[in-house]
Design a protein around this nucleic acid. Structure first.
Lengths: 241, 241
DNA sequence: GAGTGGTCTAGACCACGCT
DNA sequence: GCGTGGTCTAGACCACTCA
């Protein structure tokens, strides 16, 4: 039963996924029962289940107790976005330039997003992303000011905002919520980025939350429309075996 | 060993994830070995492994053969976007209005994206998304024209583009690649959407691919900046148990 | 009642990392 | 050599579905 170098459970998963991809099994169809697969491959049920588990994780099938396992239609309206390295889609890399870190008073918008009172002290930091020498994104982020929470410049320069917030708050489990829309650049963004007359740019609004959805940090990134495009793909990491 | 109503493996996963969230186990730390967990819970190793598998899927831990299992730092630069229902973030729903389905000649851009020769026949369809009575997005999609591939109007009206393409091509396993950027609306989009003078809008460029990355369909959606914002979250579905 | 998937056991052998 | 995780077995009982 083990004539190949791949694990038996992997073989089961691969065979079935191939049959699904070839169209022999269509969404809604039942796949062979676990005991049938045991017999077909001459392996034990736990091993078959391990293979089916792979297919389940990859959204190829879903199991219904008492009935069987069925081929499922993959979700195409759910897509994974990657920031950082993969944001530009191609292989180009971004340089970071730190423009400044300041303690300032929160304006109305910042106060609201951070759930602070207006004019509360916040740490503001501003950063420019460069593609070679050309600025392509301007980032302006805020987090509540707290004494004895030093933010090392080197970290600010290179670290992504969520990681910075996590380190600053000494929580390591944070979530990120993002809103993406087209808009006009702020005055400072307009000054820093090569935009057209209208100041069209893509705005990424980012909130960093802890486990209980408390806001730990917030800010915007203004992206040059020509150079900074987001690319995303369905089935990016969970549909691969 | 089975004093509770929850499965034993689930108990293991929950206990460990709670310890990770509470900070008792930090990223990089080793979790107890499988045999230690067997002893602690009085359960067999396969059951422990089932629990650890859950934690692995959820990105809480990763296992290293011969060494142990270690708490991993969750990725915060990877975010899930949902279109369709969840696109607007709040509970509002979009209505679809079909503007037209035509067989036209591909212009240079369409031909390039669909890997066709210029002036090849393509099916163009145009659709408006309405929030109540207000238009918020204009969609213009193309797929290669082929005889004997009728596209039923009812389907076009309601179905998402990838599903349409899948049905039309009789392939059910398709992928979606998306590019998101800010830009100026096309003439027709400007006519259909309430935009400001500059015609700022968010453009969603969507390609539908088959398993071998052949392009089956392509098109753009112009989104009103005020009403149509994308929201996305890290750890949205895989970090939940 | 027969068949299905969900859970679980008490073992086993292996390749690997360490010391 | 010893402990680790990776794979696998040959059973078991349960809740569920369907005829």
């Amino acid at each position: 039963m083990k004539r190949s170098f791949v694990p038996a459970y992997y073989q089961v998963a691969e065979d079935l996924s191939r049959e699904i991809e070839a169209g022999g099994l269509r969404p809604g169809d039942a796949i062979p029962s676990e005991s049938q697969l045991c017999a077909r491959y001459g392996i034990s049920r736990m091993t078959v289940r391990q293979g089916l588990n792979l297919l389940g994780e990859a959204d190829y099938i879903r199991s219904v107790p008492g009935k069987g396992s069925f081929v499922s239609a993959p979700r195409l309206d759910r897509i994974a976005l990657e920031f950082g390295e993969g944001a530009l889609g191609d292989g180009r890399r971004l340089e970071q330039e730190l423009l400044g870190v300041d303690v300032v008073s929160a304006d109305a918008e910042v106060a609201e997003r951070l759930s602070l009172t207006e004019a509360a002290k916040v740490v503001q930091f501003r950063r420019l992303s460069l593609l070679g020498t050309k600025p392509v994104a301007f980032e302006q982020k805020y987090l509540p000011y707290a004494k004895g929470r030093p933010l090392v410049e080197q970290e600010i320069r290179y670290a992504a905002f969520p990681a910075l917030v996590a380190r600053s708050c000494e929580t390591h489990l944070v979530k990120v919520r993002m809103t993406i829309y087209a808009g006009k650049a702020s005055a400072e963004a307009t000054a820093k980025l090569p935009l057209d007359d209208c100041g069209i740019c893509m705005v990424l609004e980012q909130s960093v939350l802890d486990q209980d959805d408390r806001v730990l940090g917030w800010g915007k990134t203004y992206c040059s429309p020509e150079e900074y495009r987001l690319t995303a793909e369905s089935d990016p990491f969970w549909n691969r075996m």
